[in-house]
Simulated scan of single mutants.
Amino acid sequence: MFQIIGIVLLFALVFGSFIISGGNIGVILHAAPHELMAILGAAVASFLIGNSMTVIKATGGGMGKVFKGPKWKPQDYKDLLALLFLLTKTMKSKGVIALESHIENPTESTIFSRFPNIMKDHFAIDFICDTLRMMTMNLEDPHQVEDAMEKQLEKHHHEAQAPSHALQSMADALPALGIVAAVLGVIKTMGAITEPPEILGEMIGGALVGTFLGVFMAYGLVAPMATRMKEVIDEEGSFYKIIQSVLVAHLHGNAAQISVEIGRGSVPSDAQPTFLELEEALSNMPNEA
């Protein structure tokens, strides 16, 4: 919502100030179509040249994050803590072996099926199940498990950030591509040097529109969108950090309630449940699955 308001304000204030100061908006409107064709065409082409199909598709999908924000809501964080509570509580009471049926087929698990939103995230489920599977193979050194989880998180986060990096690269290129369009306009003007001053002035003004549009789109639109996308992906990454915190805390010998309380500290502040809210949610959980 705020992103849409920001875009409206951006156009209204920039072009409104130009018109109020006596600028001829007709020059911009006349030149904009072919200048945008050159600038955006070159930007899209360079984007396709510099990125894999996986990144290109992810960037298109990631644009929704710019306007929708993080996919995880406060209830999702509470559900994750509840899920991890059930898992760690079961491990404490029955041992890791009792979880084998759940981690081998989470879609049919009586524990995982309680949380359909989390089940939609394949990485979260795989991350939990793979870590628990390591524990069933007697890898119970907290430091080794934490290190293995950290490497998985780094890999996932690096791949998730690729679209924002690609978008930022496009933003960095737009001012230069605007200059390319402007230079083409100057070349066109020089080819008509015998024309009257009023025609030459309009042609030079149209050429400068290219420089303006390149800088305007780079710093007013594309770069802020890349920054917002990165911010959202960073916040979504904290969801997986909670999994790491809780499972490592469990391996250190903490009770299930303590482990999820440690994980609660990794929840983003605007989505973090209070101690009492979490305690109330967990009190409704069964003692064991």
Rank of each mutant, 00 (worst) to 15 (best):
residue 132 L to T: 08
residue 149 M to D: 04
residue 68 K to C: 11
residue 216 F to D: 01
residue 168 Q to C: 07
residue 34 H to S: 12
residue 276 L to R: 15
residue 175 P to G: 08
residue 284 N to T: 04
residue 68 K to L: 14
residue 262 I to T: 10
residue 231 E to P: 03
residue 38 A to D: 00
residue 60 G to P: 06
residue 187 I to H: 06
residue 39 I to S: 07
residue 273 P to H: 10
residue 180 V to R: 01
residue 133 R to V: 01
residue 234 D to A: 08
residue 161 Q to M: 15
residue 264 R to I: 01
residue 37 M to P: 03
residue 139 L to G: 02
residue 57 K to Q: 13
residue 98 A to T: 13
residue 86 L to Y: 06
residue 111 I to H: 02
residue 181 A to C: 10
residue 204 I to L: 05
residue 175 P to W: 02
residue 66 V to D: 09
residue 266 S to C: 05
residue 226 A to H: 02
residue 114 R to C: 05
residue 229 M to V: 09
residue 134 M to P: 00
residue 194 T to F: 01
residue 97 I to W: 11
residue 153 L to W: 11
residue 201 G to T: 04
residue 72 W to F: 14
residue 19 I to R: 00
residue 126 D to A: 14
residue 13 L to C: 03
residue 145 V to H: 02
residue 240 Y to N: 08
residue 74 P to L: 02
residue 47 F to Y: 15
residue 256 A to L: 01
residue 209 V to C: 02
residue 8 V to T: 15
residue 180 V to E: 00
residue 33 P to A: 11
residue 89 K to I: 01
residue 14 V to Q: 05
residue 149 M to Q: 13
residue 194 T to W: 01
residue 148 A to T: 10
residue 245 S to A: 09
residue 65 K to Q: 14
residue 45 A to Q: 08
residue 247 L to M: 07
residue 54 T to E: 14
residue 69 G to I: 10
residue 243 I to P: 07
residue 262 I to F: 09
residue 73 K to R: 09
residue 239 F to V: 03
residue 153 L to T: 08
residue 88 T to K: 05
residue 97 I to R: 11
residue 217 M to K: 02
residue 206 G to P: 05
residue 272 Q to C: 11
residue 216 F to M: 00
residue 282 L to V: 03
residue 213 L to D: 00
residue 65 K to P: 07
residue 156 H to T: 08
residue 81 L to I: 05
residue 218 A to H: 03
residue 42 A to M: 14
residue 161 Q to I: 05
residue 52 S to C: 01
residue 201 G to V: 12
residue 203 M to N: 04
residue 123 F to P: 09
residue 182 A to V: 09
residue 193 I to K: 01
residue 10 L to T: 10
residue 237 G to Q: 06
residue 243 I to V: 15
residue 200 L to F: 03
residue 42 A to G: 06
residue 22 G to P: 12
residue 19 I to P: 00
residue 214 G to N: 04
residue 238 S to H: 08
residue 128 I to K: 04
residue 58 A to H: 13
residue 123 F to E: 11
residue 225 M to A: 15
residue 162 A to C: 02
residue 145 V to G: 04
residue 72 W to Q: 04
residue 163 P to F: 05
residue 158 H to V: 09
residue 39 I to M: 04
residue 184 L to F: 11
residue 224 P to V: 03
residue 118 I to K: 01
residue 195 E to Q: 15
residue 85 F to W: 08
